[in-house]
Design a protein around this nucleic acid. Sequence first.
RNA 1: CGGGGCGUAGCGCAGCCUGGUUAGCGCGCCUGCCUUGGGAGCAGGAGGCCGCAGGUUCGAAUCCUGCCGCCCCGACCA
Length: 582
Amino acid sequence: MRYSQTFVPTLKETPAEAEVVSHRLMLRAGYIRKLSAGVYTYLPFGLAAIRKVEKIVREEMNRAGAQELLMPMVQPADLWRETGRYEKYGPELLRFKDRHDRESCLGPTHEEVITDLVRGEVRSYRQLPLNLYQIQSKFRDEIRPRFGLMRGREFIMKDAYSFDVDDEQAGIAYQKMYDAYQRIFTRCGLQFRAVEADSGTIGGSFSHEFMVLAKTGEDTLAVCRNCDYAANVEKAAIKARPVESPEALLEPEKVETPGKRKVAAVCEFLGIGPESLVKTMIYKVTGGDRQQVYPVAVLLRGDREVQEVKLKNLLQAVDVELAEDKEVFDLTGVPTGYLGPIGLNGQKVKVVADFEVAAMRNFVVGAGEKNYHLKNVNMDRDFEVTLVADLRQIATDDPCPLCGGELGQIEGIEVGHIFKLGTVYSESMRAVFQDHEGQEKPLIMGCYGIGISRIVAAAIEQNHDENGIILPVALAPAQVIILNLGLKDAAITAAAELLYTQLQAQGVEVLLDDRDERPGSKFKDADLLGIPFRVTVGTRLIKDDMVEIRHRRNGLTVDLSPAQVVEYVLNQITAAGSTGQE
RNA sequence: CGGGGCGUAGCGCAGCCUGGUUAGCGCGCCUGCCUUGGGAGCAGGAGGCCGCAGGUUCGAAUCCUGCCGCCCCGACCA
């Protein structure tokens, strides 16, 4: 590639629209341009990085025994109705009608299409196991796209689907994918971690997310400092702890708490800690078929946070949302801040309590009357609840659910997610096979996603400095950039051109900066683009017969005679290939 | 959708509050000279439905109304 003939529109100034570093740098380095919210054009260099990720993904998927195919983006609504997801998926599914008024949607994921395909072709256990994957643009009409490629509406995804005869075989398929993912993200040069995860709208019973560790990550992970336990906080199960030393139950007492609505204010006023108070929150819950919205009261210790994903799963809802103050008042006749569980259950709303509440004694709750709270309240004696469950977000003072050790929390970017689906799709779509005894059985499925375009963004989040992108060799659009700093000098130009040809002959991807630009601009652009190795051919060639080689990542420079360059670069690239880093 | 902010040249911004010449500045772009190891200098030049529509006014980038788009915080997720 000659820079003078390559479309890499770099920007000197940061576009105002970009907030996070990967987005800013991808715009500045001419990797991407925005078309509309969450929809981007991949420019040649951005696409080159994406292709590098795809190549790694393909190699590892194929190695794991999966086969590539390509499914349609436009999908008929009826297929989605078979699984109930046409209703359930919500507005994120972009729907439209074709000229014959047929309802269609743009594929946000392909469980329905692949299951339809396989049920039509697979009859016998002899045709199994099967693992099929594709790399394709997906469209999800996200509520709020952001951060450039990190959360686009249109993005490139690798999605794979496995089909097996029984749970054991499905478990093997899952493990194969888990291992393949470990290799893929390692080869991409990423620092990452596999964590237990919630399975969300995709469904199924069991899943892991692969998280790139970065401060800008949108997910929070609970990680044990002692053992291997790591989970998304949406999922991280909290062990119910037994009542330590049961206090004697005291008689309830109504106390005036004028104007004290917030937990902190009530606690300060009463001289108690938030761990002695139970808060009552009203949630609006949208049922699984989106047909009805009903209120649910959630009881939680004063200093805890509701984990809405857990609540959603418990209630088998598609959506839960905290009710507004006015809605709470309209429903209960009590202003927020004084709402309590007594008399609530069964009357108007279901009441669900966190495990922790069940273990508390003589706590404070809202009295259900403006400006009053109740002391010495106890569950079961003073009020009833419909359900007791794990509803809160795990906190740093919680013990590790596995070993009881200390937990830390870190941020991560989800770049991969694998699911054990079981038979959710095969049963609703009647995808069956005959086992060796002639019995008809539903296929056991799994599905496995990787955010290809997101990986590039995540890699940049993890690898950059104040001068620009620093890509791992495995992902870089080019491995070497040669700067010709003496365009008008025949000897310098000849040396640069020779190195360019020699490196290319060895299969190295080289960008030759042959632009009529001043050295400063060339250095700045070379840094910005993130190419791992930079070869500078300038006046030193004339003076000392030396060219400079600089490592983008650590700034290490070496001066070599032109004859030594090819060997040096090849060695460095090989070394980088084995470690994932250069 | 709720909350906050922004739309003026390719990019970054000023002007708007307090309406009034030809709408500015920096970068980039084009031409020429000059310069060439960290985004040089000089000279000349091109480029604007001031987001869109309506209104107020003698007069609107500026005031009012509606719409559209974009960004940030929350729910969603690869």
